[in-house]
Design a protein around this nucleic acid. Structure first.
Lengths: 127, 127
DNA sequence: GTAACTGCAAAATATTTGCATCCTT
DNA sequence: AAGGATGCAAATATTTTGCAGTTAC
């Protein structure tokens, strides 16, 4: 996997994502960045961070793309992104439910490469 | 549930969606509609069809929203939209896998209202 | 007849691209 | 030094809103 340069923008954006316990959209990251860098740079840094596999993205039911940091598993096995993301319709926060992996059986001759599982509803804080 | 008026635009758009065996985006529906009606009307009709529960939407991994008709179950029970959608990365087609419902266990105090399960990979035609 | 629907224009929002300049390695 | 990264401007794409005119019921 190709590693890109460690620039200040990249470091700052990764910090924002890692400090958040919920997934963030490009717009939310921009708001948190306090105009530290350009909108366009955020788009490009997010793409870089994804190719490096330090963050992953998901989509909410309304099509908004959100980013969250990847948590490495203890055993060093490459983590999967097949966990469920929960989007609270009241507080709007998107949380990674790292330990909830759905099971299912694909029909014959389908080859899965990526998965996105998003639920919406009410989170414990808004219940 | 509120039923909206059966206008020619609504009928035509529903026809397009029902005649397709894959889920369609707003842009794709517009292309298929041969400029039968305005872009804005398509947005509004799609929203109406969703409130009437005759179509449902999903999001692909890149955030594109796609629409597909709802298939009623034999027993008359309101169908769920918790089936998996498969997005082929080669031919770009999004298919509803109606019979594949994932099972999972939500943590306590989460209340699920909607679900979106999207996989990407290769479909049987592109394998 | 009337409330719902549509088309058109325009605004608001989101994302991508080109290019000159700057910075990491 | 060199190639990658950034900022800015601008193009492109997507979605929403307002309003006047039209249509379904």
């Amino acid at each position: 996997m190709k590693i890109t340069r460690n620039t200040t923008a990249k470091t700052a954006i990764l910090e924002i994502i890692r400090n958040s316990d919920v997934a963030l959209s490009h717009t939310e990251i921009q708001a948190l960045s306090q105009n530290f860098c350009d909108r366009v740079t955020i788009y490009r840094v997010l793409n870089r961070l994804m190719t490096e596999d330090v963050i992953h993205k998901m989509v909410t039911l309304d099509g908004t793309i959100k980013y969250a940091s990847c948590h490495d598993l203890d055993n060093g096995v490459p983590h999967s992104h097949n966990h469920i993301h929960f989007s609270c319709e009241k507080c709007q926060l998107v949380t990674c439910l790292e330990n909830v992996s759905p099971t299912f059986k694909l029909p014959p001759n389908y080859v899965m490469k990526e998965a996105n599982f998003t639920l919406s509803g009410l989170c414990p804080n808004c219940l």
